[in-house]
Design a protein around this nucleic acid. Structure first.
Lengths: 215, 215
DNA sequence: GCTGAATGTGGACGCTGTTCACATTCGGTG
DNA sequence: CACCGAATGTGAACAGCGTCCACATTCAGC
């Protein structure tokens, strides 16, 4: 009984630390989520974290998972808002466009979370097959399904389908990274908007093999 | 005269520290280039670095510059090795392909340098106009020139030329990042090779607006 | 109500960047 | 050649970080 008012004890501290870490990562990126700062924010001694996380890296990874979920949610929401009055082919293309723009916008709006989501340590050796959590792969599967739907709707020829997901993801992720860390960062937001739209259209054209006349 | 044999004194220590930092960054990325380690490797006290760099971040930036130069050199070398017996249009497309593949291969072969090259601190406020060093922008200008050459050779319609450089760079940089940090990392090298080639072809198709029949 | 497991605390160590006062070395000027 | 100021390197110190240790507290089930 060192202090009559116990700041925190035997609660769900693991969740609290992830929550604080998420807040730190939001503004400072993965480097800002520090063991001592998170425990301090939770009103707990630094070592308390070691009852729930093996080390700092494990904590950051848990925070990264939450950031990935946030990205997935942003993409899913944008895709689900696709107007329903479109032909199957146009709808599939529009969904593909929305995946890309949502990804880029998330990176720009939540830079710290975006950096954290893509933060991986090289120590993470492959423990067997690479299997990610379903919720996190959701956007990627959404992308796959959208491309498959394009094939079904005749908006993408079947022989162009293989590897198309990587081409799309690369273009979108690359622009997001350049817009957040690269030279594009200094441009005004309106310019970045235009560039983003251009890059996404180019990615769509790249996988389709033919440019779409502007609607 | 504390020691008869002076390990290092009044030499070109700035260059030595960058050199050591480059070595550290090669295997450990930007996080591994630490003031104490670099000075230790140079046989000098930690504080000696402060006579040449304002702080650690300045040193890392200097190392990053060297890494960027290495990337630029790799791209330039690959492009310059383009076979000369090609039509102007085919030569331009081939050069574009080489820029992309060289970029990706550099990221895979020199992961630490690639990470360091794209390491930027948010503190770097825009001091006026964004003007990078000529040598560093060289690959970007090479990309621009190649796209312009494609227009001249009729391999790219002029109305598709605007922003094409960003679409190309985004696709290539994105794949490089995914191949180094993302899920693609766990794939065998041969698979990554195939994916890289596919992504680059897709990027070329994306900016051209039409797919090229396989030669 | 007690006992063992789970959880949180306090102190310590080595590492990092950074600052201060001090020592050394170099280059130019008399 | 001697000197003196500027440039450069040194040593000790401080705070913050991750991490390990032994110890204290709290909870949960018999």
């Amino acid at each position: 009984m060192t202090s009559p008012l116990r700041a925190y004890h035997h609660g769900h501290l693991r969740h609290a630390l992830i929550s604080e870490g998420l807040q730190l990562a939001r503004t400072g990126g993965p480097a800002a989520v520090t063991l001592r700062e998170a425990t301090r924010a939770a009103g707990v001694s630094p070592n308390a974290a070691y009852r729930h996380f093996a080390d700092r890296d494990t904590l950051v990874r848990a925070v990264a998972r939450e950031a990935q979920l946030a990205l997935a949610a942003a993409i899913t929401a944008r895709v689900e808002a696709t107007p329903p009055d479109l032909s199957p082919a146009d709808a599939a293309i529009e969904r593909l466009r929305r995946v890309g723009l949502a990804y880029i916008d998330f990176a720009r709006a939540e830079r710290g979370w975006f950096e954290t989501a893509f933060f991986t340590q090289d120590t993470h050796a492959n423990d067997g097959i690479v299997t990610l959590d379903d919720e996190i792969v959701a956007p990627f599967r959404l992308l796959m399904d959208t491309l498959d739907a394009m094939v079904d709707a005749g908006a993408l020829s079947p022989e162009r389908r293989p590897y198309a997901e990587w081409a799309c993801w690369s273009a979108v992720h690359g622009f997001a990274d350049i817009a957040v860390h690269g030279p594009v960062r200094w441009q005004p937001a309106s310019v970045i908007d235009a560039l983003a739209a251009s890059v996404v259209e180019s990615a769509i054209t790249g996988v389709r093999g033919t440019s779409t006349p502007p609607s």
